[in-house]
């Protein structure tokens, strides 16, 4: 006899525990290092050096964070600029890359999808092929170009080479292809020219996609390592990711781990903030297909 539908079988209740346990283990694995980093950022250096290191926060938080934010770190003889300066650099870089990529790619996708011009598909494939040329592959010629243009140690040099984006163009192209032809035709009859159609119809329909891309691209820009390492030779141009790595003395000298950890926690905040604030849009942009 079939069980009544409204009372779940006891077996399924037991089964529900398994995913929860798996999730709990996953969260622990992910969160524990973060907790250790946070705890370390609140301790003094000798306390960190103890074995085992305490797992409860200490009372140095104010001092550590204040010093990191305003004075910068020290490792051996290398001085790193204060965190707020590096965070400013990182923010400018991540924002420029995200916004720049979105503007460039939405316009190129719009051209490729809605206009008929000679060699349209050739251009599309040229954009597509750049997927095979990430920064790491073209780094030597790109450095050469940036040096020749006197763009070393400038925000422009830091961001422009990273802005052209095949991925975002492809994503917008796929989305634009789902816009029915009739909508374009209705707009034509309604007297909307290409730019008007872009502003009044395509852009509003793309809002969720733009939001999702912004999150992904902001994180991409924030986490850049190799390119800023090469371009920002001046300490004034250091991003926080670079600065943090420089605070760790690779020569084996003493490292102020509490400062490193405080910097790391601070470096986490902007991306986390972006994700939390944009989460609703982000999910919508990835799953929404309604037209």
């Amino acid at each position: 006899m079939a069980a009544p539908l409204d009372t779940p079988a006891p077996k399924s209740v037991r089964r529900d525990w398994i995913p929860h346990v798996v999730i709990a283990i996953g969260i622990f694995i992910t969160a524990f290092p973060l907790w250790v980093a946070f705890v370390a950022s609140t301790l003094s250096n000798p306390e960190i050096a103890q074995a085992p290191m305490p797992l409860l926060p200490g009372n140095q938080a104010g001092a550590n964070y204040g010093e990191a934010l305003l004075q910068g770190g020290r490792s051996g003889r290398i001085l790193t600029p204060p965190v707020w300066e590096m965070m400013l650099n990182s923010t400018v870089m991540a924002l420029s890359i995200a916004v720049g990529k979105i503007i460039i790619s939405i316009l190129s996708a719009y051209a490729v999808v809605f206009f008929r011009f000679p060699f349209r598909m050739a251009f599309f494939w040229m954009i597509f092929i750049t997927l095979m040329l990430p920064v790491e592959v073209r780094i030597v010629p790109t450095i050469q170009v940036i040096t020749n243009l006197n763009m070393m140690n400038t925000y422009a040099g830091l961001t422009i080479p990273l802005i052209a984006s095949a991925t975002a163009t492809l994503l917008f192209r796929q989305f634009f292809l789902t816009i029915p032809d009739e909508l374009v035709e209705a707009a034509k009859i309604d007297g909307a020219g290409p730019m008007k159609f872009f502003r009044d119809v395509v852009l509003p329909l793309s809002v969720t996609n733009i939001a999702a891309l912004f999150v992904i691209l902001f994180l991409y820009g924030w986490n850049q390592y190799l390119w800023p390492l090469l371009i920002g030779t001046d300490a004034r141009m250091q991003t926080i990711v670079i600065g943090m790595s420089k605070m760790i003395d690779s020569a084996g000298g003493p490292t102020d781990w509490n400062m490193v950890m405080a910097t790391a926690i601070l470096a986490l905040l902007p991306p986390v903030l972006v994700v939390i604030l944009m989460q609703r849009w982000f999910v919508k942009g990835l799953v929404e297909t309604e037209k």
Binding site: E182, A186, I189, V201
Partner: peptide, 14 residues
Amino acid sequence: DIAMVFQNYALYPH
């Protein structure tokens, strides 16, 4: 000076 009604209506969704 024409107006057209489409099969799938082609209304602006937003």
